[in-house]
Amino acid sequence: MIWRAWCFVAGLAPGALAGIALAPGPNDPSPLWLQAGAPAGGLLLFLIAHFLNRRPQDEPDRGARFARAASAGLLALPALALVFLQLAPGPPVLLGIVIVFLTLAFFRAVRRRAPAGGVAGQLTSIFGVLALGTTALFLLSGLVATLRAEPPLRTEGNRKAVLDHDAGIETVALPVCEARAERVDVLHGAGAHPRLDGSGQHVWFDANGPEGRRQVHRLALATGEVACLTCDEPGNNRRPAPNREGSVVLFDTDRWATWRRPGNTELQLLNAAAAARGVPSRRITYSPGPDERALFAPAANTLAWSHGEGGRYRVVSGGLVSGHGSLQV
C-alpha cells in the first residue's frame, strides 16, 4: 500500500505542471488550475501504477519497482522552478519532457525482473532524479535561450564600413579633468529616480509613503512643497516620468504581480490635476513580463519603455489612444 501512496505523491508535481501548461490563459493562469492539476496528476499516476500491477505477476517487489518508476515524476519539480522563474523552454515543452521521462521509467519497470532495491534503491532514485534532472533542465534552458537569441546583423558591407570609418578617425588622449559641481542643494531628504518636467517647475521622484511602500511624489521648486500623488494607491509605485507640460506622469508599479509572476510590473498613467481630486491612475500595459522605466517622447502621445519577457529585455514604444488612456503598440 505504501508504494501506491508514493505514486500519488510523485504525481502531484507533474499534475501541477500540467495545470499550468494546459490552462486556457497561459500568460497568467488561475491558481485553481494549479490546485486542481496537482491532485489530478497524483490520482492519474496512482491509477497507472495500480493498473500495471494488476497484470499477471510473479515478482513480490513489482509494486516497489513501480514506486521507483513514479519517482521520475519528481522531474517536474525543477521544471516548475523554471516556469516560476519564467525561463525557457516554457510549460508545454517541460510537461512533454516529464511525460516522456515517466513513460520510459514505467516501461523499464514493467520489463525489468531484477529486485527493486528496497528503501535504499528508492532514495537513490529520488535524489538521482532531483540532482540530474535539475542540472539537465537548467542546461536545456540555457541552450534554448541561446538558440532563441537574435544575433546582430553582420554583413560584409557593414564590416567594411566600420573599418573604413575607424581608419579615418584621429584619436587623441583625453585630458584629465576634475569636474566638480559648483553647488549642491538638497531638495528633499529622501527619494530616488528624480525627473524634471518640461516646465522646470516641478521635480518628480519616488520615496517611501506613510505605509513604507514606494510612492510617486512631486516637489514644487518655487515653494519646496511636496505632494504624494499615489499614497492612496496599492503596491510600490516607482520611477515617475512626467510629460513635457507636467500634467500627466507615467510610473511603473508592482500592484499587478501574481503568485506565479512575482516580478511583474506594469505601467500606470496618472493625471496630476485629477489625482488632486482623488482620481486614481490607470493601467496602460497588460503583458505578463516587467514593463518599466517609461519615458514620454517629444510627441505628446508617444512613449517608450523597457519590456521584459523570457529573461530578455527590449525597448518598445507605443501611442496613447486619446480619450481612453490605453496603449496602441
Rank of each mutant, 00 (worst) to 15 (best):
I2N: 06
A5I: 15
W6G: 02
C7F: 07
C7W: 11
A10T: 07
G11D: 14
P14E: 15
G15Q: 08
A16T: 09
L17K: 06
A18V: 14
I20N: 01
L22D: 02
G25M: 07
G25Q: 05
P26R: 09
D28A: 10
S30T: 04
G37R: 06
L43Q: 11
I48A: 14
A49L: 14
H50K: 04
N53Q: 14
R55T: 06
R65F: 12
A70G: 07
G73L: 03
L74N: 09
L80K: 05
L80D: 13
Q86H: 12
L87R: 10
G90P: 09
L94G: 04
L95W: 08
I97E: 02
I99C: 15
L104F: 15
V110C: 04
R112V: 06
A114Q: 12
G117M: 13
G117L: 09
T124S: 15
T124C: 12
I126L: 07
G128S: 06
G128D: 15
A131V: 07
T135N: 08
L137Y: 05
L137C: 10
G142A: 01
L143C: 02
A145R: 10
A145I: 03
R148V: 03
E150P: 02
T155L: 13
E156D: 05
E156S: 05
G157S: 03
N158F: 08
R159Y: 01
R159L: 04
D164H: 02
D164Y: 07
H165F: 05
H165P: 01
A167N: 08
A167F: 05
G168P: 02
I169V: 11
T171I: 15
T171N: 10
A179Q: 04
V186C: 09
V186F: 05
G189C: 01
H193N: 06
R195G: 00
L196M: 15
G198V: 01
F205C: 15
G209T: 00
G209F: 01
G212V: 06
R214W: 12
V216A: 14
V216S: 13
V216H: 11
R218D: 00
A220H: 13
T223P: 05
T223Y: 15
G224V: 06
E225A: 07
L229H: 09
C231M: 05
N236L: 01
R238C: 03
A241W: 00
G246S: 00
V248Q: 00
V249E: 00
L250K: 09
D252N: 15
D252S: 06
W256P: 13
A257K: 01
T258E: 05
R261D: 14
G263S: 04
L269W: 00
A274I: 00
A275P: 13
A276W: 01
P280Y: 04
T285I: 11
Y286T: 02
D291G: 08
R293N: 09
A294M: 09
L295Q: 12
N301T: 00
W305N: 07
S306I: 14
S306E: 12
E309H: 08
G311Q: 04
V315W: 02
V316W: 14
G319P: 03
G319C: 11
L320E: 01
H324T: 14
Q328N: 13
